[in-house]
Simulated scan of single mutants.
Amino acid sequence: MVLLLTACGQAPAEHEREERLTVVATVFPAYDFARAAGGELAEVRLLLPPGAESHSYEPTPADILAVQECDLFLYLGGESDAWVETILESVDMQGEALRMVDCVDLLEEETVEGMEDHEGHDHDHAEGPGLGEVVGYDEHVWTSPKNAAAITRAVGDRLAELDPANAGTYAANTEGYATRIEALDREFADFFAGVEDRTMVFGDRFPLRYFAEEFDIDYYAAFPGCSTQTEPSAATIAFLTDKVREEGIPTVWYIEFSNHLVADSIAEAAGVKTALFHTCHNVSTDELEAGATYVSLMEQNLETLRENL
């Protein structure tokens, strides 16, 4: 009798799992937006392992199978996941795909003063780009909270199209999360409204073009957002150090999973401190297990800005 009850109790749960939409996302922001929009109705998988660097990620056969069989596949559509197009061309997708870069207006990645040449990119340049030269569209679209809300709504709309019987639930979930992101966006705007000098120096890559554009931030960095380089020239370090000194900038910034050696070097030479700005591109295992979300990570960034800008 006990065995019978146990078996009967498990059957409905198994059936529910089979009925849930399956979503596969290449990067954390897409994963977070999808799980918020889908709620209990969707099973969402993050393809990029926690702590991994997307630019060097190589999908496993199991990853490729998951992409092929899922109901909805979410990916950037940018340079760091160029491997996706190869997969999509070689497999027979059973579901649909949505590119984050198609959900918002795109900005051109740029090479600002003092930044290392854009080696490692493939944008049909015979030589490294000069100051202000266009090097392709910046793929880090979610770093603007306004964009993040728009992408969340686009994901929610697509889930509702795939499962119209539950469209109302997806709409409520989506609007609830998008509204939270928009509230956070207003908090950032209120903060920056009281900041006279919005110049930020990154001793790292700068994948925050959309964030900087939305909040009118002047920035200097060692590398563009998609650069694969990790060791800037002495001239770049000297330029950034002089910029920190000359403009009285109190903090040198670095991004998640960086060894922040460059930021440390600049800060030590200029006599200032360093701080982390989390781009939300990926999270660590501890962050994932602790329930980190796009909103929680950006709230953390706001607090860090208040303490360091």
Rank of each mutant, 00 (worst) to 15 (best):
D216P: 10
T293L: 01
E79L: 10
P29G: 03
W253P: 00
A222I: 09
E58A: 12
D71Y: 09
L159M: 05
D185Y: 00
A234R: 08
I249G: 00
D92L: 15
F206G: 01
T279P: 07
P224N: 13
E289V: 09
T293M: 00
E43F: 05
L184I: 01
A221D: 12
A34K: 01
A222G: 15
D92Q: 11
N147F: 06
E182W: 01
L76K: 05
L21F: 03
F257D: 04
K146F: 14
L46K: 01
L208H: 00
E287M: 15
S56Y: 15
F188L: 00
V134I: 15
L309W: 03
A290W: 01
L106T: 09
M100P: 02
L74S: 07
L74N: 03
V195N: 01
T179V: 15
N173Y: 02
A165P: 06
E69T: 12
H278Y: 08
F28M: 11
C70N: 04
V23L: 06
D163Q: 05
Q68W: 13
F211T: 03
M115C: 03
L41P: 04
A7W: 09
V101R: 12
P207H: 05
Y254G: 10
D218S: 11
A52K: 15
R209D: 08
S258F: 07
L5H: 10
A25F: 01
S56C: 13
P29F: 01
A238Y: 14
F239A: 07
F191E: 00
L288E: 05
N282W: 04
E18A: 13
E247L: 13
P232C: 14
A150I: 13
T22A: 12
D102N: 13
N308V: 06
V262C: 05
Y210K: 08
A126E: 14
V262I: 11
H55Q: 10
E89P: 04
E213K: 09
Y254C: 07
A167Q: 08
E299L: 02
A82G: 10
A36D: 07
R245A: 09
L46I: 09
S56G: 08
G128F: 12
T274K: 06
F33T: 03
E256F: 03
A7T: 14
P61D: 10
L4H: 05
E161Y: 05
T60C: 08
S54M: 15
E289D: 10
A42I: 11
E53H: 10
E109D: 09
G78R: 00
M93H: 11
G9Q: 02
L305R: 03
L288C: 07
F28N: 02
N308P: 05
L5N: 15
P59N: 13
Q10G: 06
V27M: 10
E16W: 15
T230N: 14
T86K: 11
V134T: 15
I181G: 00
H121A: 14
T26V: 11
T230I: 14
L41D: 13
R245W: 07
A189G: 01
L5G: 04
G156K: 02
C103I: 02
L240T: 02
S144Q: 04
G39V: 07
L305D: 02
P50N: 12
D216I: 08
I181Y: 01
L305S: 02
D63M: 10
A270L: 03
R186L: 04
L72N: 04
A36C: 07
L65C: 09
V2S: 13
V112N: 07
V155M: 07
N166G: 12
S265P: 06
D157L: 08
Y57V: 11
P145R: 01
